[in-house]
Write a protein that binds this DNA or RNA. Structure first.
Lengths: 348, 348
DNA sequence: TTGAAAGCGTTACCAG
DNA sequence: CTGGTAACGCTTTCAA
């Protein structure tokens, strides 16, 4: 076994199959791609040869020749503990259903590296591209536009989309959950998480958190609930740590706070834990709402009131849109708003 | 903009660049791949043309010609709420550092679809392949072996590895955490999660859970702690739900249980929540231990005693091994045990 | 229904 | 240091 692995076998080519089946290569190609165009007898002979030789088509050659790669590239910040994991799942699924594959790149939160990744992705001549970031360098936008590759931006509804977009309004979502807290009867509502990083950079996640915060502030203003209760947050550490630390700081400054909206469920877990440590009754004394409806938020877990985002559907729709465009189908809406849903549970 | 996107521009080719710079295509190629082999003046002229024309190399053609794809394929079950997310991050990172790209496929827990995905992955002629599943069909193993593509199996140390492996011993990990519970003084230790699905299929996650359970049972046997306290579990619902439901069932059958080892941190969250609902003091009356050290397990969150697995490192090392092999470097160990670490926190 | 020939855009190989 | 020519393995196009 060892030797076989160290000395890569030569791949079986279409030529080999053709020879074995006594036909030309193009016939083999047809059997594989459009079997109905080949006489049954021939088809079976070829199929047998394919099986016997263990032929695995070379998509690299195929792509070069046909000028379609059947590849879609997706760029995300990170996957670990990220809201994008389910979106990537959805995308992978919808692509697979149509015989396409997924190339994944991680930007690690830098839009400079996003630009570099876009370039390398384009070098594979992808049939489409999914971007989870909402901000792009001018150069990146130019490359994308110049390439003519269909692009879908997800998890946001940009004011100036590059091409297509699938997501929801972060501002509206922030507004909705804050309004829900208001309707329950809360009047001294704080906001935890989402802000500017200590290094001055604002990361993607933070940017969206900021949008949700705008929604939060809009509700406060609309109901005359006073100044926003938000602590400036150096955003190092995990989301959970930030939730715990920021809630502590917020309560120190505004001890009478009766509800907090956390920019993500992870942040909410930190806040919840901090409240428990302090012996604060939730939701009696302090209501806590999260964002994302992660697995841990459910009834059997945290029982967290939160906002559910259709992450999987966002990915699946992004894939569908891309492939529909490729097929040249009447392109539906370029901007698809999949909405969100406030989920009321025990913490608020 | 719309029109430009609907009518894809023709790509600038190396030929175009060559023409513009007054050289041959091969010289352009050299400027891009081995600049030191080209006279500075020429190099700069070419580089200028590349920039002016916005040339993006075609890796599809390059791969076909050079017979190396600079692509590594990874197959995972799912990403959402999965322990593999950080491993994929680590892999993507180490590949990117060496100019390679990642193709991702999701198997959705079926080894039949794993086989199909392996075939499509191989059709891209990847330079390497990462498998997170521990079980493969004979056909899959044959394809892999026949292709000569380097393979790394991760998150496990298979008895009969296909090629290379990076991971840790699930049995030893289960043994270690159970032993820790024993050392703390617990004698009536239960196990929650990990088993056989209702549909009779055993999924990947379940298989590894079963290995951890073997470790758990070994400790019970070694110390004469009586029969294993495990409830047969129909494994539908989320991990959190299973944790809650199975803990309830376990306590019904063995009310005097004083500690439980949960097969993952998500399961542990469910168990923790169920204990809280029942007013059971943790860890006083019942100690709870998890597995994985997810973000939520930390001090600021659940404060969960658990087992930390180096998921990111597993991915990063897998990438490194693959690329080292490709370079033909003296292949180090084919099996890399990255170990694990018991993390003691508040719940046990 | 099948095939021959001509690419697809690059890189390997060998010359100069 | 630079270039010509021939692959790479497939699909397109045009004929038969």
């Amino acid at each position: 076994m060892t030797d076989a692995l160290l000395a890569p076998r030569k791949w079986v080519t279409m030529q080999d199959v053709a020879l074995a089946a006594g036909v030309s290569t193009i016939t083999v190609s047809r059997v594989l791609r459009t079997p109905e165009k080949v006489k049954v007898a021939t088809r079976e002979r070829v199929a047998a040869a394919v099986r016997d030789l263990g032929y695995v088509p070379d998509q690299v050659a195929g792509s070069l020749s046909s000028r379609e790669s059947r590849l879609v590239a997706a760029l995300v910040s990170t996957l670990a503990g990220s809201v994008f994991a389910s979106t990537v799942d959805g995308l992978a699924q919808s692509l697979r259903d149509e015989g396409h594959q997924l190339m994944l790149g991680t930007t690690e939160y830098s839009s400079a590296s996003e630009q570099a990744l876009i370039a390398t992705a384009l070098s594979r001549r992808p049939d489409g591209m999914v971007l989870t970031s909402g901000e792009h360098t001018p150069a990146a936008r130019a490359m994308l536009a110049g390439s003519g590759v269909p692009v879908v931006e997800v998890w946001e509804l940009p004011d100036d989309p590059i091409d297509m977009a699938v997501g929801f309004s972060n501002i509206e979502a922030g507004r909705a959950i804050t309004e829900a807290l208001y309707q329950i009867g809360h009047r001294r509502i704080g906001f935890v998480g989402g802000g500017i990083r200590r290094d001055g950079q604002s990361s993607e996640g933070d940017r969206r958190g900021r949008l949700r915060r705008e929604g939060y502030e809009a509700v406060l203003a609309a109901h005359g609930l006073g100044e926003p209760r938000v602590v400036p947050n150096p955003t190092d550490g995990s989301m959970v740590e930030r939730g715990a630390r920021d809630l502590a700081a917020l309560l120190e400054r505004w001890p009478d706070t009766d509800a907090v909206f956390c920019s993500s469920d992870s942040v909410a877990l930190g806040a919840l834990s901090e409240a428990r440590r302090r012996g604060i009754d939730v939701p009696g004394t302090l209501a806590v709402a999260g964002f994302g409806d992660f697995e841990m938020a459910g009834e059997s877990g945290l029982g967290l009131t939160t906002v559910r985002i259709p992450g999987y559907a966002i990915g699946a729709e992004a894939g569908r849109l891309l492939l529909a465009r490729k097929r040249g189908e009447a392109t539906g809406p370029r901007i698809l708003d999949l909405g969100f849903e406030v989920v009321r549970r025990a913490t608020a």
